[in-house]
């Protein structure tokens, strides 16, 4: 069958070979992620102290016992950072799951049904994209109160718009393919076509969008925690910076071990997710291939 079509079309169509490798950027991103996820999982074995106990004098400079010194109540900063990885990554992952679930649902429905459904949903996407997101999150977080799950919900409920837009355009191009037409001609109900034919086509792209959303969520969580809206019982990297700011650590020599490391970790985590996401997107999204 394939030979027949190949000979029928005399002019050979040049197809760009599908990229299966992540490339240098993707490998670096993945390595960063593995490193951070690893230290989150094995925190109790890596961290020298329990981060919630005061294990030294307050405001101590780095020493052999405390490689990154101690904070205002004598807790070991290195241990805080290692355990903080758990909170920051968990919030990033979970908020991204919320965002991608909503984004995939809305993007798929809008793209598949088109018409007024599409118009209404895309208007909603535009509204979310225009509004200044951090003040909106601060407003909602101030009302619902700072807790681990509330922060995840607030971030997740406001980060879905961009993935929804990307996935919608993917569904639009899937919709015009012959096998979807065939399924529709055979009388398959929309729910069946969506579940069996459309969703598998967008899942790989959702994965790339999921990772980009997680990098976004980590950065937003850091901002919220820094403004004092983080969960006080679960210290993330952002909360560590909040306490450093409240205790004016950045006006003393302590900025080197109390302010610098948490920010670098946030940057590395965001970069790790972003690199992996970009590389995956390039492998998975046919239209982006060869453009960068």
């Amino acid at each position: 069958m394939s030979t027949v079509t190949a000979t029928a079309e005399s002019a050979p169509v040049r197809v760009r070979p599908r990229r299966r490798r992540l490339g240098v950027v993707g490998v670096v991103g993945l390595a960063l992620l593995i490193l951070l996820v690893g230290s989150a999982i094995f925190a109790p074995w890596i961290a020298p102290y329990n981060p919630e106990e005061s294990s030294g004098n307050p405001f101590a400079a780095p020493s052999r016992l405390h490689p990154l010194g101690t904070n205002d109540i004598g807790q070991d900063i290195l241990s805080e950072l290692i355990y903080g990885t758990r909170i920051s990554l968990a919030i990033g992952f979970l908020a991204a799951i919320v965002a991608i679930s909503i984004g995939t649902l809305i993007g798929t429905v809008a793209g598949y049904f088109g018409g007024w459904v599409d118009a209404v949903l895309m208007r909603a996407v535009d509204v979310v994209l225009v509004i200044p997101f951090l003040p909106l999150m601060i407003l909602i977080a101030a009302y619902v109160g700072p807790s681990f799950w509330n922060i995840i919900l607030v971030i997740g409920l406001l980060v879905w718009a961009r993935p929804a837009r990307v996935l919608r355009s993917q569904v639009l191009s899937l919709k015009s393919l012959d096998y979807i037409d065939a399924a529709r001609a055979l009388g398959a109900p929309a729910s069946r076509i969506l579940r069996l034919h459309v969703l598998p086509g967008v899942l790989s792209l959702s994965l790339a969008q999921f990772i980009l959303a997680a990098s976004n969520a980590i950065l937003i969580e850091a901002s919220l925690s820094f403004l004092g809206l983080g969960d006080p019982t679960a210290k993330s990297w952002g909360s560590i910076l909040y306490y450093a700011q409240v205790r004016s650590a950045f006006l003393t020599g302590a900025w080197l071990w109390w302010v610098l490391p948490p920010g670098l970790l946030i940057t590395l985590a965001v970069l790790g997710f972003a690199f992996t996401g970009f590389a995956l997107e390039e492998v998975l999204n046919p239209r982006l291939r060869g453009m960068s």
């Binding site: 990098s215 900025w255 920010g263 940057t267 970069l271």
Partner: peptide
């Protein structure tokens, strides 16, 4: 990519620490 991934408040804190508190070029 680095500046895109860096928390803005952290960059501000580093700037204060270096250019305001240490070097005293700018107010805090």
């Amino acid at each position: 990519m680095f500046f895109e991934s860096t928390p803005s408040f952290w960059l501000g804190m580093i700037f204060i620490a270096v250019f305001a508190a240490r070097l005293r070029w700018f107010p805090i």
